[in-house]
Amino acid sequence: MAKPATLRQILVVTDGCSNSGISPIAAATLAREQGITVNVIGVIDKNELGEQGEQEIREMAQAGGGMHDIVYPAQLAQTVQMLTRKAMTRTIQHVVNKELKQILGESEMDNLSPEKRMQVAGMVDELGEQSSLEVVMLVDTSASMKNKIAAVQQAIFDFSISLRSRSGKSKMAVCSFPGKEKHLDTLIPWTNQVEKAYQLSSSLTMSGITPTGPAITEAIALFGHIELPEKLANKYQKNSRINEEDGGFMQDHVF
């Protein structure tokens, strides 16, 4: 069996609803069409996320073919690693499933006996470990994230250790949204090692706007393998739930 191509993921770390630009669910759909999986982690302090925020996180991950979780800052580092790995396994499982279908006709993995599948599981695990992985971490730096930034910083550094512990090639980039001028600022360009001393907080713009959708759309362009199709982006822009003009309507509290 051929080695799977590079696996590409966007990991959104946020604490609330988007309120500006194209819908993040549409943006996640767009990413998925480009072969990029979108995972989403909601970080909460107490119980501030609310049903709407939870729903958006869930739908974003669903649309992006990825996984999601909602956790406290202390669990962030562990969750980042777990979500990434599970989403990877799942992508590879799809690839293996397709190949099995080709070899065995209509038979899918579910139609194999558990004993046979135990062998396939070992293969999926091995492929996951060996494949190349590219992850863009998209960090929400709207004002309400302020007291979670230390945990995010730790998670970023930690994630780079996880990536380096893999056998396959890995690289990561870190972006924050909203950016100073654009929707997105690239804080750490593609790398396989984040410096321990890296300070996230020094480069933050604390704003009330949360343009999750536009940030995802821009993050897609960071993956070298694709050019953003103008037409698709326009199409999704029209369908977006919230327009730029009423962006301020659901702004987070600014301290």
């Binding site: 599970k86 396994t89 799942r90 599948r117 135990m118 599981a121 070992g122 999926v124 695990d125």
Partner: peptide, 11 residues
């Protein structure tokens, strides 16, 4: 929850 992970454990 995930067949692959569970089967790895069983293995």
């Amino acid at each position: 929850l995930d067949s692959i992970d569970l089967l790895m454990e069983a293995n």
